[in-house]
Design a protein around this nucleic acid. Sequence first.
DNA 1: CTGAAAGCGCTAACAA
DNA 2: TTGTTAGCGCTTTCAG
Lengths: 336, 336
Amino acid sequence: MAVTLKDVAALAGVSVKTVSNVVNGYSFVKPANRKLVEDALVATGYRPNIGARNLRRGRTGFFALMVPELGIPYFGELAAMIITAAHERDRNVLIEQTWGQRDLERSTLASLGPHLVDGAILSPEALEAEDFALLGPDVPVLMVGEHAVEARLDRVAIDNVLAARTAVEHLVRLGRRRIACIGENPRRGTSAMRLQGYREALADAGMPADAELVAPAVNYHRRDGAEAMRALLELPDPPDAVFCFNDMLAVGALRAAAERGVQVPADLAVVGFDGSEEGAYSTPTLTSIAPDKAAIAERAVERLTTRIDTGLPHESAFIQTPFVLEVRESTAGRRA
Amino acid sequence: MAVTLKDVAALAGVSVKTVSNVVNGYSFVKPANRKLVEDALVATGYRPNIGARNLRRGRTGFFALMVPELGIPYFGELAAMIITAAHERDRNVLIEQTWGQRDLERSTLASLGPHLVDGAILSPEALEAEDFALLGPDVPVLMVGEHAVEARLDRVAIDNVLAARTAVEHLVRLGRRRIACIGENPRRGTSAMRLQGYREALADAGMPADAELVAPAVNYHRRDGAEAMRALLELPDPPDAVFCFNDMLAVGALRAAAERGVQVPADLAVVGFDGSEEGAYSTPTLTSIAPDKAAIAERAVERLTTRIDTGLPHESAFIQTPFVLEVRESTAGRRA
DNA sequence: CTGAAAGCGCTAACAA
DNA sequence: TTGTTAGCGCTTTCAG
């Protein structure tokens, strides 16, 4: 069995309270006793039982992080940073994967509660507004990224409309005239805002909004990007540029272009979204909107911990984090 | 406050013992009482406090999973599957990232113990044999993947030597004559075995082992692969094939080849290791050794849970999982 | 078959 | 300042 406070107290010849005080860096402890306790602490190799502490304190010390899947580079990287930020505040993170399925997202929401986690960071994909009723009234949660649902929750994200506009304006400035987009999907929150930014940029440039250039995508995997791109390339008047709603779609689009012998960027400029490292090494390298993931992680964890510690109610604040457009080979130079 | 067992008992008009029995599906409960309790259960929306349960049971219900970083596709995907496998057994997973640094790996090892987790799955990168002394004597742990250290631990992995041989034999069969490798690193366990497989395959083919074709890599990121490949291409007699010790190195190598105008696979065949999805969409697509990650996750979690449940000591068994060679464009056809 | 009660390891009143 | 003690919510002997 592990060493307990009582064991340490016995060895040091003091009460558990004193040991507890020392362990928690509390109030004034007589120096002589402090020394005694510290020696006993190292002698026994004492380590607090986190579960017992949290039971007593009425919290668990855990966050839930709900994401579609860790195998997606964006979420793997984001999770990495959220875990790091949580550790800095002595919290641990439980990862719940939903594979973007609404039923799994719903059951994750329903399972959230004071019995298991103190709060949660959500990145839902298919949740509808009504689903948030599943959430207990006093479970502090917050969302990262854009989502279609209008929930009364704090949200940490970049300005997706602006980011999408930035991406498309970049293509306009390159002299591209038929700019497509890939990723339209009414059930995804990110889609709506990126589509809006796309449309705004075209409108600002006085370019027509051609419906056939808006390619839908059920999922946002590489495969989906490739399929959508193939369809676009088969158009009688194919696009000379494409804005993909994430990097995986863009990588798929690059793949489809390569298969058809379409030169990127000469015949087709491609912009992605996520700033994943994969895009920095693809052939050609990928221009992409790069959100500051570290900032998202930091702000989200910071917000959630203060929300938990203060016990204040939800506020549905929007915490905006920065992004940059990383220009790389896939949009290098003007149209040939 | 959340609903407790006592609340349910009060509502049902029975003792907590009876409620507990029902909740845990225990022994015989009088049907009338069972009904009473079940009604009270749904009426109150009772959810067990996992922390309290585990405190009482003397276990935490958590595993630790120590990996370099989740942002690396291989580990993101593996973690995804391990979490899934653990959930199926009512366990949760705490992820500890070490960024491949020995000191962080050491402190993770030292922090493992019955107070926080019931056991751990380790994927160390820099640990030395002596570091395992940091591990408490009764902490069930097991390793996934190959590692240089000779620890008395269970291990779940593919046959790395055979896998590496398979990769290189494939290049030999393609008619390649100067086969390089990237990833040599005396401090990494994976390196030693993959290098051995590489050497065995060359020896079997009656090909000389040219030291300048063995490119070291401090880390296994895309950047490192690109750097190593650039150096290889600057050799007076550059290689016509390269076996990279992971897919990220291989993607970097593809990048370097593209920069130099070296045609893959015509001038240079490239094989990776990991079977990551990124390689299935790179340009050209990447031939790779693909371990069955789902099998690794499943076997590792299964082994660890039985080890915990039975309380048996470590056994240093080697549990071997399958792999396949996925042949793609980067090695398509014979040398031009 | 069920109730009472002890106690997992810890923190925090409350006393001393 | 420090000791005593009562629980946090749960499981589990031990009686009944």
